[in-house]
């Protein structure tokens, strides 16, 4: 595994859970990476289930990862119907200008619907640039992810936070929609899960991710390191699949 480049597609910086008193800095992340042999990652700012000031939080994120080439920002985006946010296309342009590798959607705390009457302009702008969408199952259920993937077939969707119980839906979802990708960070830890998905020909659709800082990153590392799969598939999951998605972004 030491020869495999690890890119963490499921990580965050900034404040952790309210009341925890923990704020994750870029230096904290790099310290973790040195211990675990991770060389890069896609970063959101803050926690997924709390109200946010999106432009401010995105600026904090950009500032924290600036000058750190392994750290790729994943800013939050939302429909601009309230007119307090820039138009959707402008949000996407700004994300790309600042080096984003994906865009984070958080419909619940940011109070918007993924239905076309609310979000078509947003997803249309993302699809135009093929900027992957990062979402968490607690924000967008698998049914909703499938509906979005069907509606925007050229737009990649990265799904995280999927529980270990969801294999029946996950394998069907990945087979049904070639533009959906599963992040393997906690709590996705079902016994034999990686081997099973590889056996269904889904090696190109899995992304190494840790769930850091909520989760101990070593858990996901162990899950991949000991998976009983060939090394080329391990490399795809570890970083190559995300690198391919990033290369396909129309910057």
């Amino acid at each position: 595994m030491d020869s495999v480049k690890l890119f963490d597609a499921q990580a965050a910086l900034g404040p952790c859970a309210p009341g925890s008193g923990v704020f994750i800095s870029a230096d904290d992340v790099e310290g973790q990476w040195r211990r675990l042999g991770i060389s890069g990652g896609l970063f959101r700012y803050g926690v997924p289930n709390r109200a946010a000031d999106l432009p401010y939080d995105n600026d904090r994120l950009y500032g924290m990862v600036e000058g750190r080439p392994g750290m790729v920002p994943c800013p939050a985006v939302a429909p601009s119907a309230g007119s307090e946010l820039p138009p959707e296309g402008t949000q996407v342009d700004e994300a790309l200008r600042r080096g984003a590798g994906a865009a984070w959607i958080r419909p619940e705390p940011d109070a918007w619907s993924t239905e076309p009457w609310c979000a078509d302009a947003l997803f249309g702008a993302l699809a135009d640039r093929k900027l992957p969408v990062f979402c968490q199952m607690e924000q967008v259920a698998l049914t909703g992810v499938g509906e979005l993937a069907e509606r925007y077939p050229g737009l990649p969707f990265m799904v995280s936070g999927v529980p270990y119980t969801a294999m029946r839906s996950v394998v069907a979802l990945l087979k049904a929609f070639s533009n959906i990708y599963l992040c393997l960070g906690s709590p996705w830890c079902v016994h034999g899960g990686i081997e099973f998905l590889i056996g269904h020909g889904l090696a190109s659709r899995l992304l190494f991710g840790t769930g850091f800082p909520e989760a101990e990153a070593g858990a996901a590392l162990g899950y991949l390191a000991y998976a009983d799969i060939p090394m080329p598939e391990k490399s795809l999951i570890a970083s190559e699949n995300f690198a391919r998605l990033a290369a396909e972004i129309r910057r």
Partner: peptide, 17 residues
């Protein structure tokens, strides 16, 4: 908690602590 969880996931958590 195998077979619910992977042994490797839970072992990785402990070792990286």
């Amino acid at each position: 908690d195998a077979h619910f969880f992977s042994l490797s996931h839970q072992l990785g958590k402990a070792i990286a602590s």
